[in-house]
Design a protein around this nucleic acid. Structure first.
Lengths: 139, 139
DNA sequence: AAATATGTATTAATGTATTAATACAATTAT
DNA sequence: ATAATTGTATTAATACATTAATACATATTT
């Protein structure tokens, strides 16, 4: 059962709906959840995670607004297969903004460009590996 | 006057103290502010930004806790020159975490590893260029 | 020594975010 | 058709974050 991979920590300081959002996003980005896959119904997921159904509903609806999920009343909630909502250029700008934040943090931590470059290479490779594994149904 | 580069937007949704923190961090990472440089006193900075002195004090003290600034009662607040608070390994782990968040977002935006790699290269180069400029007193 | 400049601490006012309780709407299954 | 399943909307309770008001402590300057 897919949902059992999610678990929330009510004392982490991070809002429950955000924890769920991030876990879904990570699962999709990592290929654990694939386009067309169905998520548990809000109530079932809520039971599963021991939270109020609205908390799950909020996570789902925000992810839908972001283009990751597609919810249909009466039918269920699914991983969206269609094209991203944002255009190519906007998406790149968004990612660049995130990268710049990483760079600011990294330079303030006194990492050198060389160290940074090495770390990046490693992380990117780790994800590529994971993605290849997921395509073969690794999980 | 250094502080005039900062300006806050009270209606942006982002807390004032966070806006200031980020701007200081960006200035330091970009070489605009260098170790030993003095920031405006809390009251003066507050006047300048039209916020309560406590708001500035909070930004300063959090940045001090993070190792970026050094505040001394009666003397002022300065860009810290000493070694980072965290050890090499911890700093790398922190940066890796940030990189992973970028990767999750990017893959969910359907960027390919190749596109990602290109963007990264561009952003890193942009920062390296800026840093070289700052060392020659470019601003 | 006194005055000034500066960072720090305490408390309170206010707004916002988070979560929950509950009812509603649409689709599907019987 | 009816019941069951599922997502959606509204409202409210609560907690937390943000900012401000004010007083205090330490260093520097005169």
């Amino acid at each position: 059962m897919i949902s059992s991979w999610f678990h929330l920590n009510p004392r982490s300081g991070v809002p429950l709906y955000l924890q769920l959002k991030e876990q879904v996003k990570t699962a999709v980005a990592g290929g654990v959840l694939k386009p067309g896959d169905r998520l548990l119904p809000v109530r079932e997921m809520a039971d599963n995670l021991s939270v109020n159904p609205n908390t799950v509903a909020r996570a789902y609806s925000e992810l839908e607004r972001e283009g990751l999920l597609s919810s249909e009343q009466g039918r269920g909630t699914f991983i969206r297969a269609a094209e991203p909502l944002l255009g190519e250029e906007e998406r790149k700008i968004q990612v660049q903004g995130l990268m710049d934040k990483v760079l600011v943090e990294a330079f303030n931590l006194r990492l050198t460009p060389e160290e940074l470059q090495l770390l990046w290479k490693q992380r990117l490779q780790a994800w590529e590996t994971r993605l290849r594994g997921a395509k073969r149904g690794g999980w």
